[in-house]
């Protein structure tokens, strides 16, 4: 490859006992790309995310971030290296305020020692003030600042999704992994979310990998799509190609369905 990929997943295999959740999965994301990862339920999409972020150590294969091999790193180190994610079932710290959720995202850049935090040295106080300020600015830029003191668990569902993305952005990632961000949203909310994701990608100069079942979202914003079924990559390409791919249609609808879009 002439240009180095931002995120590169090479021949990834993940086995749980006798079950192979993902087999020989490979994916290259160039800087700034927005790529979709789709497939029927249980295809292994979230497993791919869990391996990339270090929740699981892969059975074999490699994950490289900007050329650095991060395979099997602890999740917090992967995060520090520049990969942030959201979860399929939102995992905010529900009883913490929205601001505190974002502050936790900023935690990894805190330089002050524990001692200086307890003694409230001027250096610590300044750093904490800056950190809160940055967090507020982040919330402001995403239009969430009016929620800052609300417990995150008390927000409407769609807003929780945004806060979770805001929290992920607080870690200043290079790559953002979104796990079904539009799940449970109505069409209008999904549209808003698409705009939100586009805006975030532009403003924060991100590379995005997106798992999604909502095809209007996937086809609308993804530049490329990879399709997983039973742990294997059955197709990849631009949205139009995927829509016309017979194997994809079979994976979703079963054998025997004709490609309506191609007719």
């Amino acid at each position: 490859m002439s240009e180095r990929s931002e995120l590169s997943v090479q021949d990834l295999t993940m086995r749980f006992g006798g079950l192979t959740a993902v087999r020989d999965f490979s994916l290259e994301l160039a800087k700034g790309e927005l790529v979709g990862l789709i497939g029927p339920n249980g295809a292994g999409k979230t497993t791919v995310f869990n391996v990339i972020t270090g929740v699981y150590r892969p059975t074999s294969g490699k994950v490289l971030l900007d050329g650095v091999d991060i395979t099997g790193w602890r999740p917090d180190r992967v995060c520090k290296q520049g990969i942030a994610r959201t979860f399929q079932n939102i995992r905010l710290m529900r009883s913490l305020s929205v601001l505190d959720n974002v502050i936790v995202g900023h935690r990894l850049r805190l330089k002050s020692s524990l001692g200086s935090a307890i003694l409230r040295t001027p250096g610590y106080v300044r750093e904490e003030r800056e950190l809160i300020q940055t967090s507020l600015e982040l919330l402001d830029s995403l239009g969430l600042v009016h929620y800052k003191d609300v417990p995150a668990g008390g927000l409407p569902y769609g807003e929780q999704r945004r806060v979770e993305i805001a929290r992920a952005l607080a870690t200043r990632p290079r790559v953002l992994l979104l796990d079904e961000p539009a799940a449970g949203m109505n069409p209008q909310e999904s549209m808003d979310l698409c705009e939100f994701i586009q805006k975030v990608r532009r403003d924060f100069n991100l590379t995005v990998l997106l798992i999604e079942h909502d095809m209007s979202v996937v086809m609308g914003i993804c530049e490329r799509i990879a399709v997983l079924d039973h742990g294997e990559t059955i197709a990849s390409g631009v949205p139009a190609e995927i829509q016309a791919n017979q194997r994809v249609i079979e994976a979703y609808l079963g054998v025997g369905y004709k490609n309506v879009a191609a007719n």
Partner: peptide, 19 residues
């Protein structure tokens, strides 16, 4: 706040860079 994050959700805390 990181301690509280660990209490609330270990997995999420770790993904957010909390050791």
């Amino acid at each position: 706040r990181s301690l509280l994050a660990v209490k609330e959700d270990e997995v999420a805390a770790e993904i957010m860079g909390v050791n």
